[in-house]
């Protein structure tokens, strides 16, 4: 059902002989693999990795909004929580970290990253609806915000692959959409019926 994307992601993940590939592309490939994982788990396919001192991946995360019933569980926050929950690192580790994320961070995550004083952010495709590092606001470099330093943020790394994953996700959602909507409606009606009859 998702073989095309899997193949593409696997291809770019395996192809170590890619010419002209920067170190940033290499880490972005890892983020794409995590995004594919989100896709396979029926989540919006966004993935990210945090890289320490430009060398080591110390944590990764993907969107988990549906599984958690929580619209704020974005890839970036998932990764941050997993890094801090190990007790291996304290929060000042992020000053030495670069983030690679397949989609431009939203406004929420953009300021969260600023609070963590992230060193650098690279993303795949822009986030036209919620983007906080260029699309809607420029939180990463807003000079009025004085508590935390600005950070550089650059997009366009494996942009097409990031978009393709999202596109596939929405096509699939659309196919499942009608059935799913009916199901949820049924669940909610039944639930409110139970609640009413309990009173």
């Amino acid at each position: 059902m998702n073989s095309d994307t899997s193949q593409t992601i696997t291809r770019i993940a395996d192809d170590s002989e890619m010419i002209d590939e920067t170190i940033h592309h290499k880490f972005m490939r890892q983020a794409l693999i995590i995004a594919q994982e989100a896709y396979d788990s029926q989540e919006v396919p966004v993935g990210c990795v945090f890289v320490l001192d430009g060398e080591t991946i110390i944590g990764s995360g993907r969107n988990r909004t549906n599984e958690t019933c929580n619209g704020t569980r974005h890839a970036e926050l998932e990764a941050v929580d997993s890094i801090l929950s190990t007790n291996k690192y304290t929060s000042d580790i992020f000053r030495r970290c670069t983030l690679y994320v397949t989609v431009e961070p939203c406004v929420m995550c953009a300021y969260a990253l600023r609070q963590l004083e992230i060193k650098h952010v690279y993303y795949g495709c822009a986030n036209e609806r919620f983007g906080g590092t260029g699309s809607i606001f420029e939180i990463h470099q807003d000079p009025n915000l004085k508590l935390h330093p600005p950070y550089p943020c650059e997009g366009g790394y494996y942009r097409e692959e990031s978009i393709m994953l999202l596109r596939k996700f929405f096509v699939r959602e659309n196919e499942n959409g009608k059935l799913f909507f009916l199901y949820i409606n049924y669940v909610m009606k039944f639930y409110s019926y139970c609640m009413r009859s309990m009173k």
């Binding site: 549906n66 619209g71 989609v103 919620f130 978009i163």
Partner: peptide, 19 residues
């Protein structure tokens, strides 16, 4: 299943009518 969120996204509805 819960309801789905697409808030981490990305495109305007012009780009993706499915949204």
């Amino acid at each position: 299943k819960a309801d789905k969120s697409d808030d981490q996204l990305a495109f305007s509805s012009d780009t993706l009518p499915e949204l």
